[in-house]
């Protein structure tokens, strides 16, 4: 017997229309606590729009039901830090006053000396992504929305980000929604898969990403799915 309180998020008949254009429609999915959901699809499929809608930043029709009393952490795809002289420590303290900055940096394996005082603008892509994860988890969220965890990270560093997220999940039982293009990492490090291409093209077990036919369905012509 399925208990509805197991679900952290239920989305039904979600439709997002911006400037009279349908950006996303027919999106139906639900995820349980502690799940890692990978959201995949071609560029312009509406993945980031889905996140912004889940965060209530965009108008929508349909239903988005978050479980009660949850705290959401969000890491956007792009941030502009090049022209802002903000140190890692200052940035993290902006997430939550009196936060355990050292603890958060350790959790994302950024424990090399002096990193807290470095300017965000001089960090490598991988370091910046880790700082952003630290930013999101410092507030102890129940769910983390992460838009492209490995953007700007070199090829060798992509997996280490997923490994770290996986460790984090084991330690904190956090639910994660990850927008990603790293198909090869989806199978190993996520539980469920949501395919988007203006509408929902697939929702199910992430192990199925290995199926060439499914990849074709997700990245090929738009064929909406009802399940």
């Amino acid at each position: 017997m399925e208990d509805s309180s197991d679900y952290l998020l239920k989305v039904s008949n979600l439709k997002v229309e911006l400037q009279n254009q349908i950006i996303l429609e027919k999106v139906n999915f639900k995820i349980k606590r502690g799940t890692t959901l990978a959201i995949v699809g071609p560029n312009g499929a509406g993945k980031t729009v889905l996140f912004k809608t889940l965060l209530n930043l965009l108008p929508y029709t349909g239903k988005i039901e978050w479980a009660k009393k949850i705290k959401i952490g969000y890491v956007p795809q792009n941030i502009s830090v090049k022209d802002i002289p903000i140190s890692v420590k200052e940035f993290l303290s902006y997430s939550r006053n009196g936060a355990d900055i050292e603890g958060a940096l350790n959790a994302v394996r950024l424990n090399n000396a002096g990193i807290a005082n470095q300017s965000l603008g001089v960090l490598s892509g991988g370091q910046l992504r880790r700082v952003l994860i630290a930013w999101a988890i410092i507030d102890k969220p129940n769910v983390l929305l992460f838009d492209e965890p490995t953007v700007g990270v070199d090829v060798g560093g992509e997996e280490s980000i997923f490994v770290m997220l996986n460790e984090l999940k084991k330690k904190t039982d956090i639910t994660m929604l990850l927008i990603t293009h790293d198909i090869h990492l989806v199978k190993e490090y996520t539980d469920e898969l949501l395919g988007l291409n203006k509408c929902m093209t697939f929702f199910g077990d992430s192990q199925r990403i290995a199926e060439p036919l499914l990849q074709q369905k997700i990245y090929g012509e738009i064929v909406c799915s009802n399940t």
Binding site: L55, I72, Y74, P76, I79, S80, I86, Y94
Partner: peptide
């Protein structure tokens, strides 16, 4: 100050806070 700086870094990040 903190609010404006966060908005400069990412408007969505600021709004989500």
């Amino acid at each position: 100050y903190r609010k404006i700086v966060l908005g400069l870094i990412s408007e969505e990040l600021a709004i989500s806070k």
